[in-house]
Write a protein that binds this DNA or RNA. Sequence first.
RNA 1: GCGGUUGUAGCUCAGUUGGUUAGAGUACCGGAUUGUGGUUCCGUGGGUCGUCGGUUCGAAUCCGACCUGCCGCCCCA
Length: 454
Amino acid sequence: MTVVKPSIPKGTRDFTPTEMMRRNYIFDTIRSVFHKHAYLPIETPSMENLSTLMGKYGEEGDRLLFKILNSGDFTQGVDFDAPDASPNKLAARICEKGLRYDLTVPFARFVVQHQNDIAFPFKRYQMQPVWRADRPQKGRYREFYQCDADIIGSTSLLNEAELVEITDEIFRKFGISITMKINNRKVLSGIAEVIGQADKVTDLCTAMDKLDKVGQECVCQELLERGIPQESIEQLKPVFCFGGDNNDAKLEQLKQLLHTSEIGMKGVEELAAVLDYVKEMGLTTALEIDITLARGLNYYTGAIFEVKANDVAMGSISGGGRYDNLTGIFGLKNMSGVGISYGAERIYDVLNELNLFPDAILTPVKALFINFGKEDEKYALRGLRALRDAGIPSEIYPDSAKIGKQMNYANAKSVPYVIMAGENERLSNTYTLKNMNTGEQQQLPIEEITRMLL
RNA sequence: GCGGUUGUAGCUCAGUUGGUUAGAGUACCGGAUUGUGGUUCCGUGGGUCGUCGGUUCGAAUCCGACCUGCCGCCCCA
């Protein structure tokens, strides 16, 4: 037999028990907040038809889609040497499925497909892995989990405000201090309109998005390269230094700039309305208008959100926005939705870096029974059952190995208590409880031990 | 997809101008110690030196391609 070197695909990871317990802490915390706000769970398949996924995420997104080779003889009827055979065309012939790229597009598909069974407005949450054929880096993987909450079938800005509230609550529970940035695609459209470049919104967005990273000069340079004329860029320049930290000042400046643009003014109104709702909620999170916030996903039409951790240098840990037409592609009109997505692995890295994981999640096993061999095993089992009946996570070492080895096992697993159940204990109908941190031990009846470990 | 960088035992890393049989620490397993762990001492096992090819009498070492991790770009959670 040839030995295969163990390895996993690029950008994927195994999770150890410690990592899983921490990940579950993240998922449980987020889920509890979703539940509290009356969101209902759904799941969708890992793979979707490529026709569902293609063209929803922009050119870059299409490139990053994982495609799945058709089963069976995928070469049948495909001419690989055809004169016009491009990789894309061939891929379309031999792959009809792909791995999901996010949770929002599959959700839109789900809503259309199950529209008769859904009570609208529909509030759902979904926590599943997504896949992107991106080049991996720190905090960037090819398989990662998103935790999404969306409201679909309502245009009320109360929904935007609720997502802000949920975000505030989730990160407060984690103990992570965040800044939440908000913008509106309509504002961006308005800006493009006002500077006479209505058809260049996307170019405008991707360039402006980099303002805080590369500075004003580079952004202007990029705008120029993207074919936006110098005089339009000059008109844009005041926007770069809007308002500082003051949301009201920013709104005022936007109103002046955009008063000739209907769509722009609509965006400003929406922004103001969301901020107004949020003011009533008494949140600890700083909510900040950021005109340069654009986000790549091209299905957003209204509000856009992004969350960054204040005390850690890392990409955004959460993002979302409103989409008006996503279900339209699947044949269902007038179904506006708004949603937000929390990135599990980035939250993990932030919690890890700031040492914010609770200690309690690391010691899931409370007690280990030492195995003294056939004679005493059954006696140990009696005690074990008593602990388990009381809901105390506990186990018995399955082999009658040397005591030292069994103790080492308890240490390696950070089990805080070891229980000796050998001949001495059996004859006196007691168990010896040993505290592995202090080394203290005492011989007690099982009821007493159960009480102590609860 | 583009540019840079990295890879030696399960883990952390030595390894001289290319030279015989590639080392250490740690972990593991066994023993000192058959009812007491986190300390100590002794010993065993463990390697296609990322993979494939090239140069050479001879390659962990030099060259090329690929794979993987990391960094920057693009994009993003």
